[in-house]
């Protein structure tokens, strides 16, 4: 049933609207892995539907119809809407594809650079790098996946970079939280999930808020892992609060205009509140619902592709006598 082909577009709207709520409701560990996957399925499904609309319009251009041996009149009969709409769909799909490719190149470059930077640090520091800086900061530098025996050195998939200001601002317990948090990012390959979500959002701007919510889920998962390791969620919340306030204090002292600062994401308050609330519970029904949405989208994507196929087949012109006469020349 080709009307299924509208499903990806419908699910797209549903996911765009409910994505952030889903991310917050799902257990972080589940959300981090399921959401980017669902986003990619939906984004590519929408792309296929737009492409099929656009292609059927494109195939009516005499030059293209001649190449594919399709009858433009027969194709016009299969149109689902006016030609301008179909053309817009096709153009939109190309623009989104270009955006996705650009995103892939950009992220790929950064990931390669991060990997190269990792390899310049000693293999024996167990992944810790301390940089001299007045701004409290800590982040995880991921390596690219490798299959080398003996790697990763020190058992870690990258480097944990901490500034001296961050170390100074925190107590030993709180430092432990930060280190555990960043180690959790590396152990869980979170950077990959973030990039998958960003890719889906580049291909489908409606999913931007959902991509942002995936980032929050990733921070939440690392927070919960750190809290589990130190055995104290309140301590984890304190570490978060103290680090954030120390950073804010430094920014004020340097009188950096707010507009020039890196993204002010509002995550810290949500994360601290979540750590002080009861631990997240698995929401299996919700997870199953999301998987169902993705499955439904795949069905719709297949239906769209089939419809395009069928339309083109039905519009194929019968082989003419002229073409038959030309065959021996081709075979020669």
């Amino acid at each position: 049933m080709w009307s299924l082909m509208w499903l990806p577009l419908a699910v797209n709207l549903v996911l765009a609207a409910t994505g952030p709520t889903l991310a917050r409701a799902l257990h972080p560990r589940v959300g981090v892995r399921l959401l980017p996957g669902a986003m990619l399925v939906v984004a590519s499904g929408t792309g296929v539907v737009l492409a099929s609309l656009g292609f059927l319009a494109l195939a009516q251009i005499p030059a293209v119809a001649a190449m594919g041996n399709w009858s433009p009149i027969a194709l016009r009969a299969t149109q689902l809407g006016p030609v301008p709409v179909e053309v817009t769909a096709g153009v939109a799909m190309l623009l989104l594809l270009a955006s996705a490719l650009r995103q892939t190149l950009h992220a790929g470059r950064l990931l390669v650079r991060a990997d190269a930077t990792c390899r310049r640090c000693g293999a024996h520091t167990h992944g810790l790098v301390v940089v001299e800086d007045d701004v409290p900061d800590a982040y995880a530098l991921p390596t690219l996946p490798r299959h080398i025996p003996g790697h990763p050195p020190g058992g870690i998939n990258g480097r944990i970079v901490v500034s001296t200001a961050m170390l100074r601002a925190l107590s030993a317990d709180e430092r432990r939280v930060v280190l555990a948090h960043e180690a959790a990012h590396l152990a869980g390959h979170h950077h990959l999930y973030v990039q998958l979500a960003e890719l889906a959002a580049a291909a489908n701007p409606l999913l931007r808020p959902t991509a942002r919510a995936v980032r929050l889920s990733i921070e939440r998962e690392a927070d919960e892992a750190a809290a589990a390791e130190v055995g104290d969620r309140r301590l984890a919340a304190r570490a978060l609060a103290r680090a954030a306030l120390a950073k804010a204090e430094t920014s004020k002292q340097r009188r950096v205009a707010r507009v020039a600062l890196a993204a002010t994401d509002g995550f810290v308050a949500q994360r601290a509140t979540a750590l002080l609330s009861p631990a997240p519970r698995p929401r299996r029904l919700l997870a199953a619902g999301l998987v169902l949405l993705a499955a439904v989208t795949l069905m719709g994507t297949a239906a769209a592709a089939n419809r395009t196929d069928d339309s083109l087949d039905a519009a194929e012109r019968p082989v003419t006598a002229t073409a038959l006469a030309a065959l021996p020349a081709l075979a020669g």
Binding site: P136, A138, R238, K247
Partner: peptide
């Protein structure tokens, strides 16, 4: 592209008080 996720990003002004209170009471 946000390849690097920082432990904390910059705070919104409204969050600063919330966090300060959190530290004070916990």
């Amino acid at each position: 592209a946000g390849v690097l996720a920082h432990f904390v990003a910059d705070l919104r002004p409204e969050d600063e008080q919330l966090l300060a209170d959190l530290l004070a009471e916990s």
